[in-house]
């Protein structure tokens, strides 16, 4: 936006400079010609950067400003005393455009340079000879018109720039919001997919119950329901933000068993260690199975030693799902009236 504005300004400056050629020959003077060449050169130099939409180098800005102000002074000086602010005074209107072109992004400096230009021109005019009242009037009109027009351009450009910046900010914020929404949706989908994968025995059980294939009063159905409830409860606990997620998940499983009327004694020992989510799943999965098989009493323990995390269930009834080896080792056994299940994970 800023680059486009300055490109427009470059065009205006070039046109105004071209139109000024006619005024140059009203009072032809060698100094006047030199003074005319300087702003033309500055315009050309600026064009090198402006056309490529690059910011102007500082040296060009400083040098150009000083050069055009000096050129204005020289051109004004070359005028006869009665020609000030008249049609022949080409430099007065033109230099303001150069200043705008050079200093559009440095508003305080631009205002100072414009003021300096006005003061310089007026001072030179006054020094050239006491002006008459009518001359003062017409000069005042010229100074006021030119200056206010150029300041008007400045104000409009600032407003345009501010609006453009706001629009860009709004667009960026909208884009960020859209990204956030997309991420949240992705996360929810992942969660859903994860849930569906973790639902385990629940969906077929619900389908069988709905179809009337299973008898809700049968022991086996009740056992399967107990297991599904425990698995669901464990799954819900999995995503909770708690300081000790493993204890949280174990406690969740225990709560389901207690709601069924099983008397559970839970013990936790050893300082907490970080356990990855999938390992937690492997540790608490067998716990859910063993605990949902318990009838009246169960002992659940979680022990964290130097190199191991061990989750164990001793219950009055259970399912023996043999021995599982892998990252988490699961061992099951029946000892007299008790069944025992232990899942062990080596931390190191």
């Amino acid at each position: 936006m800023f680059a486009s504005l300055r490109l427009a300004l470059l065009g205006v400056t070039a046109v105004v400079q071209g139109l000024g050629v006619a005024a140059l020959f009203v009072h032809d003077h060698p100094a006047g010609r030199v003074a005319f060449a300087v702003p033309a050169l500055v315009t050309l130099l600026c064009a090198v950067w402006v056309v490529r939409r690059r910011p102007l180098p500082k040296a060009l800005v400083v040098g150009g400003t000083v050069a055009v102000l000096a050129a204005s002074s020289v051109a004004t000086e070359a005028l006869p005393p009665d020609a000030h602010f008249g049609p022949a005074h080409w430099s007065y209107g033109l230099i303001g455009w150069h200043l705008l072109l050079l200093l559009l992004d440095r508003v305080p400096v631009l205002l100072a340079a414009q003021a300096a230009h006005v003061v310089l021109s007026v001072t030179q005019w006054v020094l050239a000879g006491a002006p008459e009242r009518a001359e003062i009037g017409s000069a005042g009109v010229v100074v006021f018109s030119v200056t206010s027009f150029q300041l008007g351009v400045l104000v409009m450009s600032r407003i345009l720039l501010r609006n453009a910046r706001r629009a860009a900010e709004v667009a960026a914020e909208r884009e960020r919001a859209a990204t956030r929404a997309a991420l949240a949706e992705q996360w929810e989908q992942d969660l859903r997919a994860g849930f569906a994968g973790q639902l385990g025995a629940t969906l077929p059980l619900l389908a069988d119950l709905a179809d009337g294939v299973l008898d809700p009063r049968a022991d086996d159905t009740r056992l399967r329901c107990a297991l599904a409830a425990t698995q669901l409860r464990r799954l819900f606990a999995e995503n909770d933000d708690v300081p000790d997620p493993l204890v949280h998940e174990v406690t969740a499983c225990v709560h389901v068993a207690e709601r069924r009327g099983v008397e559970v004694s839970l013990a936790v020992s050893g300082a907490p260690v970080p356990v990855p989510t999938d390992v937690r799943r492997e540790l608490t999965g067998p716990l859910a199975v063993a605990l949902s098989a318990a009838r009246d009493r169960a002992r659940v323990s979680l022990l964290r030693t130097e190199g191991e995390v061990r989750v164990a269930v001793i219950a009055d009834a259970g399912v023996d799902f043999g021995t599982v080896t892998g990252r988490v080792e699961v061992e099951c056994g029946t000892y007299g009236r008790h069944t025992r299940m232990e899942a062990r994970w080596r931390t190191s």
Binding site: S265, A267, S269, R299, L303, T305, R310, A312, I314, H338
Partner: peptide, 27 residues
Amino acid sequence: AGDRSDHRPALSAREVEVLVEWFQSES
């Protein structure tokens, strides 16, 4: 069994198993 302090005494493997099993089973 969960003691990880530096000055803890050295227990034999069997002693550790007894501790763990007793903790796990209460019986």
